[in-house]
Design a protein around this nucleic acid. Structure first.
Lengths: 145, 145
DNA sequence: CCTTGAGTTGAACCTCGCTTCAACTTGCAG
DNA sequence: CTGCAAGTTGAAGCGAGGTTCAACTCAAGG
């Protein structure tokens, strides 16, 4: 089991284009050593990082947010399973939240089908957190983000 | 209850910027009549459309896809509750699928925490659909999209 | 009529997440 | 040593989803 991966190998293993890997490096999401001839050599643990990045992206998290999450991993030593577990636990919470939100969206949509609304005041879809505000009558769309 | 909304009113009610509403119109997502003085006047049912658009966006669906979904609504008459219900039912399926995918992601993440992987071969996160392919050893990230 | 706020347009600009390109240099097999 | 695939860089381009701007016009109150 050799130590370092070339960019081509990391790309093949991770399914991420080489150009994207270079891009991630510029953003500080992954790291690479260099050979005497200036070519990138990736430690195998970078595979984990890349996997994590793609997973997080799928959940709709920006690269910038992912970067700051990865920054919580120790830079001085190879992250242990526990390091990853801690990070992953935090993100499990995010996933739970996303799932909760989406389920609610679905249920609200169902409810709205039943009542024929999507235009009615006080509909939870229009007003998920019941924060109507006081500026005149009628509901407002209040969406997170 | 007056008939038509100005762009300012629709923006306030929907929480969507006026510039975004004009953008949506250019893309064919919403429609407006014009006054003699060329100002937009929105039918109240456009509120439904805008709500639908934002909800769909939150679920990660592109405006183009949303447009083609909305195209299925009758243009000749005001969409009824049934029209919306039909559309919403289709989208409920999409939501269910998204939720299913995300739940799986979460469970896989949990499993990977347990086994300390994220770097191991045959990990479901690396290889969600077991489509490893045959080009050499090691797992590949195979993500939908 | 005058003013002021609301609305109009097209064009330019922006961020994000990349990809493509040109013009090289490295690494390795034969 | 040759030859060729694989790697390097910075700059430019792209598509999505908008925002901002300048230079107007419209609508409504006093």
């Amino acid at each position: 089991m050799q130590e370092a991966l070339t960019i081509g190998q990391l790309s093949a293993r991770s399914g991420v284009a080489q150009s994207a890997l270079r891009y991630y490096e510029r953003l500080g999401l992954i790291r690479a050593e260099r050979t005497s001839g200036n070519q990138r050599r990736y430690h195998r643990t970078e595979l984990r990082r890349v996997a994590f990045i793609r997973i997080a992206q799928q959940v709709g998290i920006s690269l910038e947010e992912i970067r700051s999450a990865l920054d919580s991993l120790p830079a001085s030593r190879t992250p242990t399973a526990e390091d990853w577990a801690k990070l992953s636990t935090t993100w499990r919470a995010r996933l739970d939240e996303k799932i909760r939100l989406m389920s609610r969206l679905r249920d609200d949509l169902d409810a709205c089908i039943g009542c024929g609304c999507l235009s009615l005041r006080r509909c939870t879809l229009y007003n998920p957190e019941d924060n109507l505000g006081g500026e005149g009558p009628g509901a407002r769309l209040v969406l997170p983000g």
